[in-house]
């Protein structure tokens, strides 16, 4: 199914779960409500017309400083003409980060049998970074969710092994959040001999 058909199918299947959708640059994207994540995930994997058997990626984005940059975009739809490639659809501009969301957990799915892709975005508010785990549905999510916890501090309810994965245990603070300074140093110094 192409992007538009995928969005229509999933929206019809789980209408209360989908908050909004778009297919910017041809990537089918659905913005989901957090409480319906597990139900939608099961539909994605088990429905024969979707068959999303491969969880490609699970990551997070910290949208807290999005759009604060003062420099206007060269290519924004402000009347400046851009020669875009005709095979990349660009009818609608990107709707922007999910409204009011401080964080978004982003899932990418692929079906090896039907070769179509889908992106799910689950927006989370600032002090409420909690999502259900999908590691029971796709074991690939186990390590990916550990990395999201490590890098962003997002908790996954029901995760079998919530530990840091890339950083060492004594590290303080989720490093990929926008409020973590890029030049902070937390060297891990070994025991004094």
């Amino acid at each position: 199914m192409d992007a538009g058909a995928l969005i229509a199918f999933v929206t019809k299947r789980v209408p209360e779960a989908v908050a909004s959708s778009h297919a910017w640059r041809g990537d089918a994207t659905l913005v989901l409500r957090r409480e319906h994540l597990i139900e939608t995930a099961r539909v994605l994997r088990d429905d024969a017309a979707l068959a999303m058997n491969l969880l490609v990626d699970l990551t997070a984005v910290d949208y807290s400083t999005h759009g604060e940059s003062p420099v206007p975009a060269f290519f924004s739809s402000s009347g400046v003409s851009t020669r875009t490639d005709s095979s990349i659809p660009d009818e609608n501009p990107w709707p922007g980060p999910p409204l009011g969301a401080h964080f978004a957990v982003v899932y990418h799915f692929f079906s090896t049998t039907l070769t179509h892709r889908l992106r799910l975005v689950v927006p989370l508010a600032a002090a409420d970074e909690e999502v259900d785990t999908v590691s029971a549905i796709w074991p690939a999510a186990n390590w990916l969710e550990r990395e999201a916890w490590d890098m962003f501090g997002i908790r996954f309810n029901g995760h079998p092994d919530p530990r840091r994965i890339l950083m060492y245990e004594e590290f303080e603070g989720p490093p990929l959040r926008k409020d973590y300074p890029v030049n902070a140093r937390q060297p891990l110094i070994g025991p004094e001999n």
Binding site: W24, D27, V56
Partner: peptide, 21 residues
Amino acid sequence: RPPPGEVYFPVEGANGELGFY
């Protein structure tokens, strides 16, 4: 300066699907 937006692009890396989001 690209327009605001998000993309995912997969290529076939030597170990598998290497995607950039």
